[in-house]
Simulated scan of single mutants.
Amino acid sequence: MAAYMEELSVTEADNLKKTISKLFRQTCIVQMRYDPVTLTPRDNPDYEMCVRHRGFIEEYLSVLGCELTHDPQEHIFRLVGDGVETEKMSLTTTIIVLLVKMIYRDKILGEGLKATVTTLEEIREYGKNTNLLNRKLTVAEWREALYLMSKHQMIELPGAVRDVEDRTPIYLYSTINLYVSAADINALVEEYREETAENETIEENIYPDAD
């Protein structure tokens, strides 16, 4: 492997190292990155690095107990395997990811690929309509969810997470399908609804209305 790197130019070798580091940090690399404000697509140089050096990357990752998978239809490279550090999502973040997946599905089916943009306002509306979000979330909870989705290439933000407001455009990538499959949506919605109903019942029993 060292010999392979030595054959590359200094710039190419450095970019390859950065691409591998990004794989470990964000697990997914998409072919096209979008400006969420203008929706202008642009080639992702990290994707091209994966294409050019796929054999080397696969060999390198196998030593670390990881695997590089490629979805030719969605044009996504993804890092999987026992060597990949797992990131546990909080219940609130999981629900937000689920809602974003529902929004992505509805927009793709209803309006086509150019419509895959959402906002915090719309996510809250979906949460209300599905009864998955029945309380006001804190700024920290929203930021935690947005940071995780941005890190793993599920969404694209026009700026920093801290600057996202109610109507800030949030571009949705098809990578959201990798984290919540379409087949699981209804089951997850039902599960969280039941969980919410149980919690409400418990609270009513603990704090009955005074006569």
Score class of each variant (00 low, 15 high):
Glu6His: 08
Ser9Leu: 06
Ser9Gln: 07
Ser9Ile: 02
Thr11Pro: 03
Glu12Tyr: 02
Ala13Gly: 14
Lys17Leu: 11
Lys17Cys: 06
Lys17Gln: 13
Lys18Leu: 09
Ile20Arg: 11
Lys22Gln: 13
Lys22Phe: 00
Gln26Leu: 01
Cys28Asp: 05
Ile29Pro: 05
Arg33Phe: 03
Pro36Gly: 08
Val37Trp: 03
Asp43Pro: 12
Val51His: 06
Arg54Val: 01
Leu61Ile: 00
Ser62Thr: 13
Val63Asp: 14
Val63Gln: 15
Val63Tyr: 09
Leu64Thr: 02
Leu68Cys: 09
Leu68His: 06
Thr69Ala: 09
Asp71Gln: 11
Glu74Pro: 01
His75Arg: 14
Ile76Asn: 06
Arg78Phe: 00
Arg78Thr: 02
Leu79Gln: 05
Val80Glu: 12
Asp82Trp: 01
Asp82Phe: 02
Gly83Ser: 04
Glu85Asn: 12
Met89His: 12
Ser90Met: 03
Thr92Ala: 06
Thr94Val: 00
Leu98Gly: 13
Leu98Glu: 14
Met102Ile: 04
Met102Tyr: 04
Ile108Gly: 01
Leu109Val: 09
Thr116Gly: 09
Val117Cys: 07
Thr119Arg: 03
Leu120Ser: 08
Ile123His: 10
Ile123Cys: 12
Arg124Trp: 01
Gly127Thr: 00
Lys128Met: 12
Leu132Ile: 09
Asn134Glu: 11
Asn134Ser: 10
Thr138Ser: 07
Val139Tyr: 03
Ala140Asn: 13
Trp142Thr: 04
Trp142Phe: 02
Ala145Phe: 00
Leu148His: 11
Leu148Ile: 11
His152Gly: 04
Gln153His: 07
Gln153Met: 09
Met154Ala: 05
Met154Ser: 03
Ile155Glu: 04
Gly159Tyr: 01
Arg162Ser: 15
Val164Lys: 07
Val164Asp: 08
Asp166Ser: 09
Asp166Lys: 12
Arg167Trp: 04
Arg167Phe: 07
Thr168Glu: 01
Pro169Trp: 01
Tyr173Val: 00
Thr175Asn: 10
Ile176Gly: 08
Val180Leu: 01
Ala182Asn: 14
Asn186Val: 06
Ala187Leu: 08
Ala187Ser: 14
Arg193Tyr: 04
Glu194Ile: 08
Glu195His: 05
Ala197Trp: 02
Glu204Trp: 03
Asp209Met: 11
